[in-house]
C-alpha cells in the first residue's frame, strides 16, 4: 500500500464503493488492490496515465467486465454478483458517455435518443417525442433532431450521446474522456452540461479526463490512479499543491518521473557499441 495515500473513508453516502479490486487482462495486471469511493451527488474525476485502466474501471462499475477479485458496489448492489437481468436493470439507471460517442450510425439523432426508450418502455409516440425533444433541448440540439450522426461535429456528437445517456434520468453518469478532440468552445459546452446535470438534477458523475483546467472547474474530488493503485486523491487544487512524485509529474507537467520518458530499452551506450554488453 502506498504510505502517502489515505484510504477513502467508508460512508453510507457513497453511491459507488470499490474495495480491493484486482484485475488481470492477459498477462498484464490492470488493478492491484484498488479502493475508491464516490459520494452521492458529487462529481468525481479519475485521472491517470493512458493504458492505466480508467476505461476498464468504468466497465467494472457497469458490469461489462468482471474483476478477478474485489467488490464493486453501486447503489448498494454488488455488481460482480448480479444476474444478467439485474445487471440490465442497473444499467438502465446508469448513463455512459463513450469516448467516441458511439451513436448508432443507422439512426438519426432523434432515433438515437429514442432508441433506449423504444426498447424498454412502451410509450405512446406523442410522449416519446416529448421526452426526446426535452433531452435534446437540454443539450441545446433540438434543432439537430433530424440530422444523421455522420453530419455532426465531434462536440455535437458528444452532446447527442449525452442526451441519450440521460434519457432515463439516471442516478449516475460515467464520462469516458468527454473532452478529447473537442475545440475550446465545444469543450466548454460539454463542461457546462456536466455541471448543469450535476447541480440541477443531482446526478452523481464520474469523469475520466486529462484536462486539468476543466477538472478544476467541475470536480469535487480527484483520484489519481497509476500502476493499478490509487496514488493520490483529494480536491483538485489540493492535489495540485501536493508534493509527491506522481502529482508533480501529473500536475506539474514534468516529462520524466514515475512514468518514465523513455520506453524500456537496453543500455544506450551498449546499443551504440561503445561498451561491451554484460554477460
Amino acid at each position: 500500500m502506498n504510505p502517502g495515500v489515505a484510504q477513502p473513508e467508508s460512508s453510507a453516502a457513497a453511491l459507488v464503493q470499490v474495495r480491493g479490486l484486482h484485475t488481470r487482462i492477459g498477462a498484464k495486471t490492470i488493478f492491484d488492490g484498488l479502493d475508491l469511493d464516490v459520494p452521492r451527488g458529487s462529481v468525481t474525476a479519475i485521472m491517470g496515465p493512458s493504458g492505466t485502466g480508467k476505461t476498464t474501471l468504468l466497465r467494472h462499475l457497469t458490469g461489462q467486465l468482471r474483476p478477478d477479485t474485489g467488490s464493486v458496489r453501486v447503489d448498494g448492489e454488488e455488481v460482480t454478483k448480479l444476474s444478467r437481468r439485474d445487471l440490465f436493470a442497473l444499467r438502465e439507471r446508469i448513463g455512459f458517455l463513450f469516448q467516441n460517442s458511439a451513436l448508432l450510425t443507422d439512426f438519426s439523432v432523434f432515433e438515437n435518443i429514442a432508441f433506449p426508450l423504444r426498447q424498454h418502455a412502451k410509450l405512446p409516440e406523442e410522449l416519446l417525442r416529448d421526452i426526446v425533444l426535452t433531452k435534446l433541448q437540454a443539450v441545446g440540439l433540438r434543432g439537430a433532431a433530424q440530422l444523421m450522426p455522420s453530419e455532426l461535429s465531434g462536440g455535437m456528437a458528444r452532446r447527442v450521446a449525452l442526451a441519450r445517456a440521460i434519457v432515463f434520468d439516471p442516478m449516475l453518469i460515467l464520462y469516458d474522456e468527454p473532452f478529447v478532440g473537442l475545440d475550446p468552445i465545444a469543450l466548454n459546452q460539454v463542461l457546462r452540461l456536466i455541471r448543469t446535470l450535476n447541480h440541477t438534477l443531482g446526478i452523481t458523475s464520474i469523469l475520466v479526463a486529462h484536462e486539468l483546467a476543466a477538472i478544476q472547474k467541475v470536480a469535487d474530488r480527484v483520484y489519481l490512479i497509476a500502476n493499478g493503485k490509487l496514488v493520490a486523491q483529494g480536491a483538485p487544487d489540493e492535489l495540485a499543491r501536493q508534493d509527491s512524485p506522481w502529482t508533480r509529474q501529473f500536475f506539474g507537467g514534468e516529462a520524466d518521473g514515475p512514468v518514465p520518458f523513455h520506453y524500456p530499452a537496453p543500455d544506450y551506450a551498449t546499443e551504440l557499441g561503445f561498451r561491451e554488453a554484460h554477460r
Binding site: T62, Q64, N100, A102, L103, T105, F115, P116, Q119
Partner: peptide
Amino acid sequence: GLMRATDQLDAMSMMAV
C-alpha cells in the same frame, strides 16, 4: 466490425439491449 470499433455494440449493452 465498425460498430465494434466505434463502441456501438458496447453502447447497446449499456442501454440494456
